[in-house]
Amino acid sequence: MNVQILNFIIYQAMKSGTPLLLATLGEIYAERAGILNLGIEGMMAFGAVVGFGVAYTTGNPWLGLLLGALAGALISLIHAFFSISLRVNQVVSGLALVILGLGIHSVMGKPYVGQKLSNTITGIISPSLAQIPVVGSIIVQDPIAFLGLALSVVLWYVLFKTKYGIILRSVGENPAAADALGINVYKVRYLATIFGGLMAGLAGAYLSIIFRPSWTEGITAGMGWIAIALTIFSLWNPIHALWASYFFGAISASQYLLQGKGIPVDILGMMPYIFTLVIVVIASLAQLKKRIGAPEALAVPYVRGQS
């Protein structure tokens, strides 16, 4: 395996893995608070179209990223309202969000078709920095990838080493007890869900502004669903999400290296999904043995006064 190939795998792992990572980190926080949000695909799609629209109209890609993230947060409010205040079934609410988000993304994106962004984010272009082995190329190219990496560490720290993290986790494990301790369960869940939407929106905007800076529909292409799988895969731990997303990106990328060597393309294409299945099963086995698992109150609406 030569350096070029290794570089490619790592580069592609980070490039393809970053939108997955961002969405997964958001979903981890939402699920840690007990809210299952399957609507990631819809939130990403909405973030992608808003982000592109803003970046195109204002010429400022950073503004596009910001507003794309906020768009994701906004649309996640729908799911939050239905799941937390109306206490409806979170699976269906999330699915409805996907359908709605994709529909809006399609209609709103029409005027931008084929348009490309004049200014996009290409990072600090300095060929010498790019010489840093392994991570050099991606960090130079893509500040958001760097952000993803940094956020994983920060979010892990917050979740496990700070008071806020404890509050978040308690709301997801035992909301009744948290409530008794004076924590506003509803507020925490709302905030967690909105944060999930923010990250998903950012992931979507990243796709339409940086990954491929010209508009066509359907840019999310199923990544939202993979993020849901990765949330479980990573055992709801931001650091695990980091290498899980990159790992998934690497598997997806290496199938192209293995092409032409006799294995049918489609069998190779199954690889990422089979891997995910296998890892999820292993994760569940680990859960059973070590008792680390999904937040106990995941997807269970909290109603004060009812157990």
Partner: peptide, 20 residues
């Protein structure tokens, strides 16, 4: 045709509201 998706999403949320 994207409006169909919006309609379906809205419908589903309305149904959820009804469930509520």
């Amino acid at each position: 045709v994207g409006f169909v998706g919006i309609f379906q999403g809205v419908l589903l949320f309305s149904v959820l509201f009804g469930e509520f």
